[in-house]
Design a protein around this nucleic acid. Structure first.
Lengths: 243, 243
DNA sequence: GTCTATAACCTGATAGAC
DNA sequence: GTCTATCAGGTTATAGAC
């Protein structure tokens, strides 16, 4: 997981700007160059399309199960182009993995010593549930990676993530010391928050089937958020100083 | 998921009886036949060994990523034997999937209208955490299956599982009506219980890395159980009528 | 029952024509 | 920059010798 932030396409940035629902734009109109200057070069658009397709395939099959042929087919480009743009399958996967953690790590920022526990944890839960709703496939790629042993991300797990948990754990300990919440094992508390929020992305198929729905709609995610908030906040003795 | 309970080998039964830690028993001693009568025929022992290896490989790579060659290699038999015993890769996988849910569904039995909420939910959590500790690979095979869309188990999800959730949901509603716990969305409550307990099997690699351990030991599972119990019981307003 | 050998096909990756 | 054609190696599955 080397940093590749510099000027490269990331899925989340790019999809936020471009990717019109699903128009067949094989033959780019003559005005394309003007558009390109706004949404990015043909190169960038192709890269984005490939990344999007790759994310879907890796999320469904895992690294070993995914094939470059399927990624190419879903993108609508020849298989050779995938390799032309991203080199090996492993490099394509690595690139994708790097983008996944941004939202999750950003969300952690709200847990600060000076924050009000109910408000901070509430917002953290909101953000994590929203991430599960908006980028479920990112979550699934990550989940399959970890279930498979996490060999592609072990440096991150033992480094940055461990450090984040230690730091945020101190905040929780302080809140407990100040009598603003119960004393809970801070690491386990975070494992449980992650599990609860991410299950709505990772286990969406199971949840949808049980709820007799085709897919999880906004209402489901809202109930999820409320249920998690209510159980967590009350469960570790946080007074709702304001609702 | 057709029923195949009748006299066939299941992983859990078989491993409970046989599978000595890891002894190289390629050349079976002359007394083997006596042993066979106790632990099962050569056929059954081979089937069990293959099932065990297959579970590990499917848990790590998912269905598409797993190869019969690797399953055979880990078992220590020629690849052809795997097909001889189990037919296709799909049939082997199906067989494995069938065995996974037993423990989970059995655990649900403790949630009964006449039970005491704190005791029943406490025991349910205990059982589910124990399942994550004792059969983590079963949990992971299931997780990868669901993350990939659950196409091999959709009948179970929409049938039996939906029905179980509806039934147990009624129990929770009754407890709430009787003022023994808060009113929470029963389906979501169960999704969260599953997520919290199963994360210790599915995300074991991440949890171990963050906790700076090689693997999750008994103490970790005990803290997990206590933390989940404490947050869940308090979080939905269940009085600990007895500890 | 068991396993070697092989058929038929798929996969990642690239050379080289356009 | 793009994509067809192709290679070397891997994959499921089975025929047939033992």
């Amino acid at each position: 997981m080397k940093s590749t932030k510099n000027a490269q396409v990331t899925l989340k940035e790019a999809t936020a700007i471009s990717t019109p629902k699903r128009s067949k734009r094989k033959a780019v109109p003559s005005k394309a160059k003007g558009v390109e200057r706004i949404v990015g070069s043909v190169r960038k658009r192709n890269q984005t399309k490939i990344l999007k397709a790759a994310e879907a395939v890796f999320a469904e099959k895992g690294f070993d199960g995914a094939t470059t042929a399927e990624i190419a087919a879903r993108t609508g480009v020849p298989k050779a182009n995938v390799h032309y743009y991203f080199g090996t399958k492993q490099q394509l996967y690595d690139r994708l993995i790097e983008n996944i953690l941004e939202v999750w790590l950003d969300a952690l920022d709200v847990i600060r010593p000076d924050a009000e526990p109910a408000q901070a944890l509430g917002e953290y839960i909101e953000r994590k549930v929203r991430a599960s709703r908006d980028w479920p496939e990112s979550s699934r790629v990550w989940a399959i990676e970890i279930i498979g042993g996490g060999r592609n991300v072990s440096a991150f797990l033992k480094g940055r993530l461990r450090q984040e948990v230690r730091e945020k754990g101190k905040v929780l300990a302080k809140w407990a010391k100040d009598g603003r919440m119960d004393r809970v094992d801070p690491a386990h508390f975070m494992f449980l928050l992650w599990a609860m929020t991410q299950t709505y992305a990772d286990f969406a198929a199971q949840i949808a089937a049980v709820l007799a729905k085709d897919r999880l709609n906004d209402k489901v995610f809202q109930t999820a958020e409320e249920t998690i908030k209510s159980i967590i906040l009350k469960g570790c003795g946080i007074k709702q100083e304001k609702v």
